[in-house]
Design a protein around this nucleic acid. Sequence first.
DNA 1: TTCCGACAGTGGGGTCGCAAT
DNA 2: ATTGCGACCCCACTATCGGAA
Length: 508
Amino acid sequence: MLLIDLARTSAAVAASSARLAKITHLAELLGRIEPDEAEIAIAYLSGELPQRNIGVGLAGLQDPPEPRLAATATLRQVNDLLSRIKAQAGPGSQTARRALIVELFGALTRQEQMFLSRLLRGELRQGALDGVMIEAIAKAAGLPSAEVRRALTLRGWLPAVGAAALSDGIAALHAFHLEVGRPVSPMLAQSTTSIPAALSKLGGPVAIEWKLDGVRVQAHRSGDEVSVFTRTLDDITAQVPELVEAVGALPSRDLVLDGEVIALRPDGRPEPFQVTSGRVSSRIDVSTVRGKVPLSVFFFDALRVDGADLLDLPGEVRHVALTGAVPAELVIPRMVTDDVTAGEAFFKDAIRSGHEGVVVKSLQTPYAAGRRGAGWIKVKPRHTLDLVVLAAEWGHGRREGKLSNLHLGARDPATGGFVMLGKTFKGLTDELLAWQTERFLGLAEGPTDGWTVAVRPELVVEIAFDGVQQSSRYPGGMALRFARVIRYRPDKNADQADTVEMVRALLL
DNA sequence: TTCCGACAGTGGGGTCGCAAT
DNA sequence: ATTGCGACCCCACTATCGGAA
């Protein structure tokens, strides 16, 4: 098949807003794909690459060569070139990559160039990723989408699942099973603002567990072999020897466990997330960093113990299996209750111990791999501040033509000015986007680089955030974590905004 | 008919490793 | 030595579609 066929299908998918129409377009193409190109086509059309990443981003795609007029490139040719690009390494690799990019793009028409460029940047923007592609595969193969979805949760890579479904049907899907050593997409949590809200949503007795501000890990053990994967299924085994040793020391030799690694201080309180993150991503000289920043691990779920797959069993049953396989000091603090007061006390205790919050879990729900299942709900405290808008940036995609990303500042009484603490684009409705675009243009002041519009510091906006972290990026040496807009405060003037001292007090 | 779950999209700060400067 | 880039860790929120209620 030719790349242009995919580019045309992608355009048709993007042109329609109805999901069912998108699915029809995708299924039509999958219906005529050759088996040996199915994996490539499914990957490209769901915004992924078979190579996962190839070391080319925004900068590497500047100034593409002149496009061809006739489309001749096949999927296989394109994909082979992407593999060659990924294989480049060492000094001179940037130049080599650039040469291969030019070779690749020089063989494409303009439409193909646009499609591939968006794909490589991770900005396909056709309104169809895995969720829609699952339905399209099911339709093309004549199978229930639930079967495709189930196989995906066990395999973790939709192109492989789709190719199998298209060539060998339901039998191929049934052949996928939890395999020790191959990661499963982790179950994710929804979130609410309070313990009562979470309890009423789940109803009945629930489990409440501490939420640690570390890195999610899935640990597999088969015999003496231990491997560890992240939330995005990357293998970090070599970076977390403490975890490998802890799992290797367990009595059970056949395990898949779900948990969190975190760096703790000697007194047991957690290090800031930045410390854990830096330690986990260090790959060079792990034995040295290990001595400086040791990692601890805490498990909260078991997907497999001693030959038994537990994915479809109720959460409570899985937890019993977990505590049977793992010593108590490696199990995350947890309580079972249906009492709001007891739950709130447990939540406060987690916060007092320096942790991020809690996750409230239904005792019944199975492990919904890869989904933001309704069975798990996280609860975190929410801080708010009244800050001043210092500037705004023009948006992309569906926010094109709207001023979107806000630069936020706190008042500095010492200078009478404002100190920038970060940006946010979250929490804005379409109506608010339209309003603020007009308002900011009226307040515009000073030089504009065509990207950022500086405004007179007059508008006060209420901002929610998860915490304050150290920052080398901003003049105050601190930045807000996960800032989002709650509402504008027309009732406040800039001289009533919150101050840098108030922010600094939260940086502990 | 209304409600709500799932999905896609729009981006945030920080860190590491690598190649280029 | 420093800088820029890619990749990945953490992540919140809104709009939309279409099936469920």
